[in-house]
Design a protein around this nucleic acid. Structure first.
Length: 108
DNA sequence: CGCCTGACCACGT
DNA sequence: CACGTGGCCAGGC
């Protein structure tokens, strides 16, 4: 895969403010790769940086990408709740995955 | 080069 | 809100 694209995606993920979430598609779009949501997912799957806030990335409908029962699922829920994000039924409540990161970063 | 798979998405029912 | 369908893009074989 394109190394540059990967770096931009990682940067976009790090740009997500704590206590908020963003969709894979949004992250990809913010990285300058519209329509590459799956690429974003792949990048996170292979990421090794422990400082990366990957837990703030959820699906477009606000649900956790991992299936319930999966170790990573609980991990993500726990980290999100630790930041004040309301997780219920395996999905984020109170604030759907931001339609646009700018809206979360630059505010309403 | 073709075929299958996947931390996805939008849309209609 | 839950499900099913079709589309898209990269990887692995």
């Amino acid at each position: 895969m394109d190394e540059g694209a990967r770096q931009r995606i990682l940067a976009a993920v790090r740009a997500i403010p704590a206590g908020t979430v963003a969709g894979y598609g949004e992250v990809a779009r913010r990285a300058g790769l519209p329509g590459r949501a799956r690429l974003a997912a792949r990048v996170l799957a292979g990421n090794d940086d422990p400082g990366l806030p990957w837990h703030r990335v959820v699906r477009a409908d606000g649900s956790i990408a991992f299936p319930p029962g999966d170790p990573w699922h609980g991990e993500q829920c726990q980290r999100l709740r630790a930041e004040g994000v309301v997780v219920q039924g395996g999905r984020v409540r109170g604030q759907r995955a931001a339609a646009s990161l700018d809206e979360q970063i630059w505010g309403p």
